[in-house]
Design a protein around this nucleic acid. Structure first.
Lengths: 344, 344
DNA sequence: TCGGCTAAGGACAGCGCTGTCATCAAATCA
DNA sequence: TGATTTGATGACAGCGCTGTCCTTAGCCGA
């Protein structure tokens, strides 16, 4: 069964190949009756347009590339992160009949630029989604921009200007979490800051400050500890916070790993969570639902962000213009077992 | 800067486009001197072949599709599994200058067949890697085979005949684990069986039996418990095993999740791991290194299996024949903290 | 009545490569 | 020596579509 081509369809329908092409591509100026004739022929021959030919003639690929930091370079803690991004991107691609190509890359390597250039010029994708932390690497962003391929960055730190990005409301939602803790009666709410290099976790600290203010609480330096996003650093920070004379009744960590560290230390010190100490994190990694007690946290809408990014790319291509306005996908509070009203 | 085409290169090198094509595709019968001329021209123009044109003219796509069961349909426990497969597949693709397309799909849906057909006929990939459990779904396998696309199944249950597959040595390595436990002095080694539907975990049970025999130990029915691969079922099985009059001194679970369940129960019952009880799992999921004590387990070479699968596809295409011989990638013992010599 | 307009459809070039076959010089053979 | 093979290269068709431009018929208003 040799594959049917557009010529076969045209012959069977008694029309020109161009008209078949019009129907296939949903172009205007085809009579309903004609369209039906073509569709019947397509169905009878089980015709599928050849993508390579479409690509060559139309100068686009119906391919979106998702570029992200190669997790195999590290100890795969980011697996969940990537899978969720892929999910969202795939959802959008499927709807628009695009396919998704994945391209992990290590940005520390000297030849990222060459590698990305080669990939882009060979694949000629219709759009690129660049995930954090790569979305903050100027060298990478510039390389991609230079190829002229439409680009959307997901969750970059500096969200100013071009190229376009999709972000989440880290600061606002963190303030909401802080207010939520305050609403449970907590007055001494501690915060563990994340890695200073990470922009997102910086916004979370801002949100914490906002939340305190909005709740009428004062910022207290001795309730603010430093971490570097690792479980270890969460443990260290917790030890420090929990030996204060005046103990905090709630600890809000800038990410879930550090929050997990806090829970571990609390367990070791015999401090009951959430009875004696409420703990909240941020990111909603898989672990948040696996540890005991399950962790109250902020859900990062990774999947929706990636979906939005792909949609922006596809939409802008339809309209033949660059994507123009950034998108903010809000995160949501996930209240679980690790937080409770203050006991007195 | 309009992209350079093969014609530009040919003109600059003073040769025909066909010769340029030969150099680009590493075809034989080109003089060293000629090759250099072409390469110089390519470099000067920064020429990259247009994939769409190559695909159209050569009837292949330089694209491999990795099809797997959609994790977003469940609660993402399989994220690590998928990322590892992707890693391996990407490694092989990169080496051969192929790109990887990912295509999760839910095999329960009525329209899998239509969906896969559409994808395959549009993308026309040069090969497909089908991951478990989809690799066991006859309907899916047959659909793909009917398109004539080269197919390699990864880790299917029934490894008989066509289409080709890549598997691991579940049975042998499980017997090795059992012998390892015996070599630590354990005489009462319990086993927790996995979900009866899963073929792989069935082989592990066989391996356990082999291992006992090879170590000169007798199979004891009351040391064999049933599970269904979940943490919960591991807990249940552990409770059952640990209330026997004559306690086992080691428990080997058919997967890591169940082993984690065992550790949890042991902790609750005040049984020290590994001092009083050795625990071993299988799969080497991320959790295995995260829990305390870290879990002795069997590393599933997922990444290497996927890599092997892609290599088989690419290799067979080079030779213009179907891939022919199945591959077995051996798993390896990961001895960590949860196992120790028997105390008396 | 006629020129001009629009909607529907067709003719055809060409996207940028690869496959096939032809060509031709040099090497090899009888 | 001429015949034959071999290696290196080129000419050219054509992969299966889409973009551009052209044709035609029907319709409008003046």
């Amino acid at each position: 069964m040799p594959k049917a081509t557009i010529d076969d369809v045209a012959k069977l329908a008694g029309l020109s190949i161009k008209t078949v092409s019009r129907v296939v591509n949903r172009e205007p100026n085809v009579r309903e009756q004609t369209r039906e004739k073509v569709e019947k022929a397509i169905a009878r021959l089980n015709y599928r347009p050849n993508k390579a030919a479409q690509n060559l003639a139309s100068h686009h690929s119906h391919l979106i590339v998702l570029i992200y930091d190669d997790p195999s370079a590290y100890e795969i803690p980011s697996a969940g992160f990537i899978i969720r991004m892929q999910e969202g991107a795939l959802r959008a691609c499927r709807m628009a009949n695009y396919e998704l190509l994945i391209h992990p890359c290590r940005y520390r390597g000297k030849n990222v630029v060459a590698e990305l250039n080669a990939m882009i010029e060979q694949v000629r994708p219709d759009g690129i989604v660049l995930a954090a932390p790569l979305s903050n690497v100027r060298r990478v962003v510039q390389t991609i921009e230079a190829t002229g391929t439409p680009l959307v960055r997901v969750s970059p730190g500096k969200t100013n200007g071009n190229p376009l990005y999709v972000a989440t409301n880290d600061r606002e939602i963190s303030s909401e979490m802080t207010r939520y803790l305050a609403s449970l009666g907590h007055r001494r709410i501690a915060f563990i800051k994340g890695h200073p290099g990470h922009k997102a976790v910086g916004s979370r600290y801002q949100g914490y400050l906002d939340g305190l203010e909005q709740s009428g609480l004062e910022v207290c330096d001795e309730l603010i500890a430093k971490g570097d996003n690792s479980v270890r650093s969460g443990e260290a920070a917790a030890l420090e916070l929990l030996k204060r004379r005046d103990l905090p009744t709630a600890i809000f960590a800038a990410n879930d790993d550090m929050a997990a560290g806090v829970m571990r230390v609390a367990d070791r010190l015999g401090i009951k969570v959430p009875d004696q100490l409420s703990v909240a994190g941020c990111d909603d990694i898989a672990l948040a639902q696996q540890i005991y007690p399950t962790l109250t946290t902020i859900n990062q809408p990774l999947s929706q962000m990636a979906e939005a990014a792909v949609l922006m790319l596809i939409e802008s291509q339809r309209k033949k213009k660059k994507p123009d306005s950034p998108t903010v996908v809000p995160g949501t509070l996930k209240v679980r077992e690790s937080t409770a009203a203050r006991e007195d």
